[in-house]
Design a binder for these strands. Structure first.
Lengths: 378, 378
DNA sequence: GTGAAAGCGCTAACAT
DNA sequence: ATGTTAGCGCTTTCAC
């Protein structure tokens, strides 16, 4: 790498390919060929052109290239949650990580977009965001996390012609989506608790209006009915965090509910609940057996370690990106499409575990129960 | 919103302005004017064009617009840390939030880019990233957090002609940067402890190689010397997290060090240290007075609440964006920027701290000591 | 008020 | 192997 910029005052990447061509005494085409490692360029000429590029510090204009190619290589990751919620949440940490990683592998950059609370939010904000995302038109597609029922954003994005993959349950069933089997998850947790002989089940569900939370609750409800035990209480946490769990548990206890089994909407909620139980002198698992959902960091560091329904968060993220890339490849019917395609073989034909929905539009991954000390003493 | 797309098979946002013009029976110029709310268009014509746009679901191509305008309205936020570190860190939560917010206000989108650990990382990764970011050329500029000495990325970005603002200490002093007065912070903490009568000071510094951590330590060192008390120990935490603090404190105690005052490189480190102290039967603040750094969430929820050096994280983020927009506005000789001006009271431009007369290049914000129960009993 | 035309920086047929 | 030419989709003088 050249030690520093010499020659011209190259303020910014202002040198154009045309200029390089002129300086090297060749045509723009040839310069372009050199830039793209096209084989048919005489080594001698190639060298000269490259030297000029180095000399003037030429940097190709990405926007122009994108215009020609018809895509930018930039994907959006939409998380309709305020930063305060997203950070500190092991789920999002894992998800973002997986998405970014998968995209990177495919040569794409990810723009993570956090928006304000979708519930409290004026639809204004939300729609304006969608408009902006699409109007900017710099994203090849968007992975959107569904954190609230009937989120209008994915639809708006689709209307704008932007490929979208929803993580979770999309409002419109025809939207491509990747999800885990939340229903089964709620069921698994309850079945486990029932097998342990517990008969007074309570659920500390995730936030109201959150599709995943609702499904988990639903699954638990059905299992409770099927097992002919009693659902002694249901309380919705404000979010999926530890404090939300603690408060929800406090409310439940304050209401006089005394379960001997607890199903939580997330590991963090479970951890918070255990703290609240502890504060009330109730022992886990002796007095109350507790099951979480996620199997992320909080589950392992808690005391006692948490029995939980493990969901493959990283796989979900990775898969969502693959699905999105498929869509992008399909929709972009522009020219020069043939050259690329699935050249990198990273398009995993995910028939994976679980239900592979209609036309591969919806993919649902399996969850699995992990038993630890919060339900069964060591 | 039109129920569905009629007419053409408009698969995606594939309708162009040209097509709209044809359908509306006007020229592309007029159509463009309608799109950009240019005044000189007859209301009647405007209405007709807009109707066509609605009908065919026209969405302007952002890439093409960007090409013309010379900028994309997309800023990068570079955090050379793995997701596992970034999430769960109140500092980054606050910073990202502030940056995204400030950018949004200026009509920009932020692409948050996380990269792997800069220390363990092969320089390869890092450089490739920088290359990618710039080669893509879709970003108008980048806010880069400096988490390691001599980070090559900002330089690489600058070489590629991309405006960069570093948060923290840039390797090259001529790089525009925004920082807080870490040196003073370290000093303030020690001075406070000394005033309380403590004489055996220990420092639980942030990660080795981190410029901010080093400065804080340096400040503490100087204050210790000035006060003629004893620096009984220094231990560097692996990161800025709670567990890192706990482990560092454990190491220090295991080494037989018994301070009566502790200065930590972050609130989280302080919290972890307090846990370790507690586990060793040492009381805070009676046996050991503890001071943190940041004044973020961990400081307030800890027991006892943490005395700490407050740094204006949100302001740093906001300011970095403003600085960046200034740079972008300067470099991109396009249409003038509007929303500007740093309305922060605490801007302390350090003139001449860098090289040649380039003024206002580096901005250092003040920190302030916040006294709570970890040093002074209620 | 509206249109024709000239590009922004790059790439990809077609020639040669 | 290299040059010529024609755009990608949009904006913007400059005429009328």
């Amino acid at each position: 790498m050249a030690a520093g910029r010499s020659d011209h005052s190259t303020s910014g990447g202002r040198v154009t390919l045309k200029e390089v061509a002129r300086l090297a005494g060749v045509s723009r085409s040839t310069t372009s060929r050199v830039l793209n490692d096209h084989p048919s360029v005489r080594p001698e000429v190639r060298a000269r052109v490259q030297e000029v590029m180095e000399d003037v510090g030429y940097v190709p204009d990405g926007i122009a290239r994108s215009l020609r190619r018809g895509h930018t290589g930039m994907l959006g990751l939409l998380i309709p949650q305020p930063a305060s919620t997203v950070f500190g949440d092991a789920y999002f940490a894992t998800l973002v990580s997986a998405v970014v990683d998968a995209a990177q592998r495919a040569g794409c950059t990810v723009a993570t977009v956090l928006t304000d609370d979708p519930l409290a939010g004026r639809p204004d904000t939300t729609e304006r965001l969608a408009a902006k995302l699409s109007a900017d038109g710099l994203l090849d597609g968007v992975v959107a996390t569904a954190s609230v029922d009937d989120d209008p954003v994915p639809g708006a994005l689709l209307d704008a012609g932007l490929p979208v993959v929803v993580i979770g349950e999309p409002s419109d069933a025809s939207t491509t989506s990747v999800d885990v089997d939340n229903l089964a998850g709620g069921r698994l947790a309850v079945e486990h608790l029932v097998e342990l002989g517990r008969a007074r089940v309570a659920v500390l569900a995730g936030p109201e209006g959150n599709p995943s939370a609702r499904r988990r609750l639903e699954g638990a409800r059905r299992a409770v009915e099927a097992a002919a035990v009693t659902l002694v209480g249901v309380e919705a946490a404000d979010h999926f965090g530890v404090e939300d769990g603690r408060r929800a548990m406090d409310r439940m206890l304050a209401a006089g509910t005394r379960p001997d089994a607890l199903v939580a909407g997330s590991d963090a909620i479970a951890v918070g609940a255990m703290a609240a139980l502890d504060a009330h002198g109730l022992r886990v698992p002796d007095d109350v057996a507790v099951a979480g959902f996620d199997d992320l960091a909080p589950a392992r560091v808690s005391t006692p370690p948490l029995t939980t329904v493990a969901q493959p968060v990283a796989s979900v993220g990775r898969l969502a990106v693959h699905r999105l890339l498929d869509l992008v490849g399909t929709e972009a019917t522009g020219p020069a499409r043939d050259a690329r395609g699935s050249a990198d073989g990273r398009v995993v034909p995910v028939t994976g575990s679980g239900v592979d929905g209609h036309e591969g539009r919806r993919t649902v991954l399996d969850v699995a129960l992990v038993v630890r000390g919060s339900t069964v003493p060591d």
